[in-house]
């Protein structure tokens, strides 16, 4: 059988092209595969080494909010924690609603979230082991510089929202069940308004995207101060309402209850939570962003 093979090939190859160019194609494919295989094998030892250094239990899954990632805080804190402890932190940045849902299923070990009411419910249902305050910042209402609704300087955020609704000013909501969205909803409730209509846009996206949409639409939005400060350069929005106690934004760390889900890395989660409330991390949080924005983006709460 094998002896027939070259005969067959020679018989048929000329039907389209010369044998030489045909072989060249295959040599080319061979070289390509070889290069690809080499790149892959060159690169994979590093991942394998990392995996060897960090057996499964050395990895911690942190479910957190987009604001901690988009502001760059996580990138400042996590490498320090990893160097100190040897754990590998897999930080998944989602909205607070999704982070809590992930925690409920035991898909994460530790949560860093900001929705006190939802967190209390989470704890009451026994999904969390411990909850500790880490830091806070505050929300602000931003809008265009000329402020057509004239809400600038209002003391009550709920009153300001009411005025926006009455004037049917474009308002861009996160609309994604995030911590920011939950605060916004409670403010509407306080204002006695059920926001509906074509002036009320539910973006369903992260804070950064929402600010960009708001700027493009010349509308208003509720945002955490940190994300606004981080993005301020690129968008044409200014802070109009701030300082209302209802606009406080508290971040807590929650250990996921391992008794409900056996695969939760309790020890690693504890180590990360301890790190977040340590003197070192709290000092880092306090100093974070000061150089770039002239004010802190987050205020530490664990150590006064």
């Amino acid at each position: 059988m094998a002896s027939i093979f070259p005969v067959v090939a020679r018989e048929l190859a000329p039907c389209e092209m010369s044998q030489a160019s045909c072989n060249a194609t295959f040599k080319g494919i061979g070289i390509l595969f070889l290069t690809l295989a080499l790149t892959l094998s060159m690169a994979f030892p590093t991942t394998r080494k990392a995996a060897a250094e960090s057996p499964p239990k050395r990895a911690i899954i942190l479910a957190t909010t987009t604001s901690t990632q988009d502001s760059g805080l996580l990138d400042a804190l996590i490498p320090i924690f990893q160097r100190k402890t040897g754990y590998v932190v897999k930080a998944i940045a989602v909205g607070t609603g999704e982070a809590l849902a992930i925690g409920k299923r035991g898909e994460a070990d530790v949560l860093l979230v900001h929705a006190p009411e939802a967190e209390e419910e989470f704890m009451a249902q026994g999904h969390g082991l411990h909850r500790k305050a880490v830091m806070h910042n505050n929300f602000v209402i931003v809008g265009p510089f000329d402020d057509p609704a004239k809400i600038k300087g209002m003391a009550s955020a709920a009153e300001a929202l009411k005025k926006l609704a009455q004037a049917r000013m474009t308002f861009v909501s996160r609309g994604d069940g995030s911590g920011t969205h939950k605060v916004e909803q409670s403010l509407w409730k306080k204002a006695g308004i059920d926001p509906k209509g074509n002036w009320y846009l539910e973006a369903g996206q992260g804070m950064g995207e929402v600010l960009r949409i708001t700027a493009q639409k010349r509308g208003y939005a509720l945002t955490d101060r940190g994300t606004y400060l981080a993005l301020r350069k690129g968008i044409n929005l200014t802070i109009l309402v701030e300082g209302d106690p209802a606009l406080q934004n508290f971040y807590s760390v929650i250990l996921v209850n391992p008794s409900k889900h056996t695969r939760v890395n309790r020890v690693g989660a504890q180590a990360f939570a301890d790190f977040l409330v340590s003197v070192e991390a709290q000092a880092l949080i306090k100093a974070f962003g000061v150089k770039e924005y002239g004010q802190p983006l987050f205020y530490p709460d664990a150590i006064k």
């Binding site: 987009t66 760059g72 897999k90 930080a91 998944i92 950064g208 995207e209 690129g234 968008i235």
Partner: peptide, 24 residues
């Protein structure tokens, strides 16, 4: 992948993150 820095961040997810952070 989760877009984890140094582990699962690839060109497309990094692009999404950078634009979300305003680093156009």
């Amino acid at each position: 992948g989760g877009n984890i820095k140094g582990q699962t961040r690839v060109l497309t997810t990094a692009t999404v993150l950078e634009s979300r952070m305003g680093h156009f």
